[in-house]
Write a protein that binds this DNA or RNA. Sequence first.
DNA 1: TAAAAATTCAAACGAACATTTGATTTATTT
DNA 2: AAATAAATCAAATGTTCGTTTGAATTTTTA
Lengths: 194, 194
Amino acid sequence: MIKKKKDIRREFIIGEAAKLFKQKGYGGTSMRDLAEQVGLDAASMYHYIKSKDEILQGICFDIANTYVSQLTEIENATQSYSQKLKALVRLHIHLMTTKGPEVSVANNEWKSLSADALTEFKSLRSQYEKRLAALIEAGAEAGEFQQVNTSVALFTLLSAIRWVELWWKPDRGIATEELENSILTILFQGLERK
Amino acid sequence: MIKKKKDIRREFIIGEAAKLFKQKGYGGTSMRDLAEQVGLDAASMYHYIKSKDEILQGICFDIANTYVSQLTEIENATQSYSQKLKALVRLHIHLMTTKGPEVSVANNEWKSLSADALTEFKSLRSQYEKRLAALIEAGAEAGEFQQVNTSVALFTLLSAIRWVELWWKPDRGIATEELENSILTILFQGLERK
DNA sequence: TAAAAATTCAAACGAACATTTGATTTATTT
DNA sequence: AAATAAATCAAATGTTCGTTTGAATTTTTA
């Protein structure tokens, strides 16, 4: 028996929690709301999870770890910096279209983490940003990028794709491939026609 | 007497509320937190404001109206579409550096508006986006922009600058002028060097 | 300076919250 | 079928929330 029924239930609860947290925020979602969503009494959920905060931690750190391991892979690949950066942006977009609610929560609700978790989460994010900034810096020195402030470039890239998590739906009539290509065109070639 | 002392106090309370809402979220900020911040007992604040929700409404609609009137001005100006779009992006950035907390709240906490206000706010935002999309569409038809999906271009532009509201501080060592120029370079010329 | 108005807060309200307890029901194992 | 374990929930705990009340204090007005 690889996965226990209890674990499956637990993961289901966390998944439903991600949807609700995205929809109404962490503070705006009560354990009773969540219980109703999963079809249990609030008290019963505590058979599967330890606390509301533990759920949020699960979501946030799962996403954070995914981002970090993806970045590591890209760092170790042999490509131009431009290709690396584009690949990373693609991965960000892809994660949003496949794990929308979780990414949304990790991006917007991490402030509600308990003190300890909050510290660690911020540290993880800060490390991630530093490594990404190094990639941009190296690319700029290699002459592949425009000469703009590294922080500005870093945050503009990361921020530019954040809307996808709110907007994209499978039935929106735009394939993820086209979505990625359009965004990459704007960010790397510019919106203005030359 | 143009402005009553009571109004000034009221505006001070709302301003402090914006800072706290940005910092801890609307749901995460209690009226007792806010009272402490402004140096009053929670009960005393109700002499100046009607409810917590009214504060949030004040902040959100003030910002929304600012955006709308700025867009109207730009629509009526005689410039190329590219210049219009750039001017609008500059105004967005500028508003974030001058009214950071309020913009942050209008962008992130509007979900907590009461049902009626929520409906109106969403409607305002939707109208704004439609008018902005029309600008992009027209510019694309005039051959000024790359041929990318209009919605993608719209949201990518609006989203790309959202980080400024979280990151920018007067003491960050980057002038708003340089900030605006760097962002405009990336968005309109592209990060990649040609 | 006396009357009126504006401002403050101590105390309390009912509602909603996350979580615990302890008992009961259901499923699994022997 | 008996014994054991897993799953469920009714009820209650203590806390925090937004807001109201009513009385006290301070400021302004006459």
